[in-house]
Design a protein around this nucleic acid. Structure first.
Lengths: 146, 146
DNA sequence: GGGAGTTAGTTCTAACACGAACTATTATAG
DNA sequence: CTATAATAGTTCGTGTTAGAACTAACTCCC
């Protein structure tokens, strides 16, 4: 079991390192990039939605959005339907940045993934999902009774 | 390609969440646990070795070891062979903690991994290594010429 | 053996991470 | 209706993170 864990961690960290190093060329930090990409091609969404999609907790999200807003890449707006909610949306400048960085980033990563045969990717994806579901179940077990 | 990336990220994060939640019961943070486990069953090692095995960068390592040392779980000692190096070693109390937390932690995670058939784990491990090597190559390409 | 370059660890800064406490708003129970 | 519970975001405290600048000690080369 330990070898699979190690390989999972190393693979993800290798992905992070490659991805992050490329992202930093855009002047964004990885979480900021994550937000910009998530907001790309949408009309904006609430903090709650953003948090769900990016897996960034709400306390952290406030700061990340603050910094993006300070740079003029996103804007906050009150929700018309719920006084508690705040909508976050890319500004025109944010939109421009999104289009400038997203596709090139995928293109940068593509060669690594294409080194696996198509069937290998499908296989990997299937196994990862299987393991993830089992791990999520484990978390729930812990939450229920330690 | 994007689906595999998403599944890799989600699987690793699911692992982190399950693992971290269990680890926190031991009173250690995940990086601290990582250090204690790495030092377990050894005679201690240098910061450099610790950094290589845990993938924690040296600047971060100083702080993590500081906090473990403040709690009396590890001790620093000058290297007898290299005046620049510092050896980090579990104290007797650190040893006790290691034995108390390591095996139970593996036992906690085991059910999730055993939900995959043996061949599935081998398969997964192989694919992850393959992808990792390709990703590391990508990082090197970037470092060489952007 | 002495100077140039390398290496080990520390310090610093800016950003992120999580959880808990807090405020304001909305929903629900009775 | 109104007291109570749930929810959305912010703030705060502690710890982690990477990277760059720094100090001290080692290595290499002539």
């Amino acid at each position: 079991m330990v070898p699979v864990i190690r390989e999972l961690a190393r693979c993800y960290q290798a992905f992070q390192r490659a991805s992050d190093a490329h992202i930093r060329h855009s002047g964004l930090t990885p979480p900021q990039f994550d937000i910009v990409v998530t907001l790309g091609n949408t009309d904006g969404m609430t903090f709650k939605d953003l948090g769900n999609r990016t897996l960034i907790t709400k306390g952290t999200l406030t700061g990340v959005v603050d910094r993006l807003e300070a740079r003029g890449l996103v804007a906050r707006a009150a929700s018309p339907t719920d006084g508690r909610s705040t909508l976050v949306k890319l500004t025109p400048e944010g939109e421009r940045l999104f289009h400038r960085v997203f596709e090139p980033h995928l293109a940068f990563l593509a060669p690594a993934f294409e080194s696996l045969p198509e069937c290998g990717r499908k296989e990997l994806e299937k196994r990862l999902r299987q393991l993830r579901l089992a791990l999520e179940k484990r978390s729930q077990d812990l939450a229920r009774q330690g």
